[in-house]
Design a protein around this nucleic acid. Structure first.
Lengths: 153, 153
DNA sequence: AAATTAGTTCTGTAAATTATGAACCAATGA
DNA sequence: TCATTGGTTCATAATTTACAGAACTAATTT
């Protein structure tokens, strides 16, 4: 696998991005490589060798990414290897997960208001505001996505 | 600090949420406590004792949260203690950070298209779609927030 | 049947993270 | 001036994580 210096750097940047999203380093680099490489589908060995990670780490990373639906693989008849690539739905899912996370937060904040008794209701106003903002966002987002679909068809 | 069982559980839930957002456990619990406690402002000792974390861990957690702007404190004349509370702008900032993170991703994806040469341009289409979706979102979001402001005034 | 391929699984461990407790310090109070 | 309060800093201990390397397996090829 020949990669330019720029490509290698970008793999690291993408790696760090994904580390910050909770992936372990090797897993994050695999995502980076699959995105940045000139060929979209890479074999186990190509990944392992290009990133200089052991077979076990490669195996774990690929299985983790397969299980979480971030990647998938194809095969070719007469070739025992699997060729891994990023799932095309990956980015939409990534976005959805971010939104889902805000929804989890919203749920927690609603519980907060149920569970505590603040002497000072003024202080809760801001929290209520944010909760209703998140509710509003959640309601409007689908419409917004639909709007976007329209602009491009 | 008297806390109900429900409150303690919720502190843990909020703690885990914040751990998943990159906070260390003790820091995440402090955020949970400040949110869930009946009184919005708590002293160093109240935090340390209620959460059963050492003074040093409490000190580190509070300073970390102060530095990152998640909490602030007030003082009262004739009382040497500081009373810590969540900054009211915290939730808006949290939301902004999530959006900013998507913007970082978008920037990385644009670099991807610059850096690699894919034989198969079909495969890049999906990526381009997602990039323009994020661009669209980034453009529309401020308008959407403004819209929300209107609904509540 | 033996060797090779394409991985997987199982320790072991280096490194990083997270928290503790003790010592410390500066400001206030007795 | 001595003790106490409200913390901070440091060394270190306890986990946790993240990976390498070796042994293993099931399918294929020779």
């Amino acid at each position: 696998m020949a990669l330019s210096e720029k490509q290698r750097q970008l793999i690291e940047e993408i790696g760090i991005y994904h580390e910050n999203n909770g992936f372990q380093p090797a897993v994050a680099r695999v995502m980076g490589l699959l995105l940045v490489s000139n060929t979209p589908e890479l074999s186990f060995d190509e990944i392992s060798e290009t990133l200089n990670i052991s077979k076990s780490a490669t195996s774990n990373a690929l299985n983790m990414l397969l299980n979480t639906g971030h990647i998938e693989y194809t095969t070719f008849s007469g070739d025992r290897k699997r060729y891994f690539r990023i799932r095309s739905s990956n980015w939409r899912d990534h976005f959805a997960k971010k939104m889902e996370d805000l929804s989890v937060l919203n749920c927690l904040l609603k519980k907060v208001l149920e569970v505590r008794k603040r002497e000072n209701p003024m202080y809760d106003q801001k929290l209520n505001d944010f909760i209703s903002f998140l509710d509003y966002m959640k309601g409007e987002l689908p419409r917004m996505i639909e709007e976007w679909e329209k602009t491009r068809s």
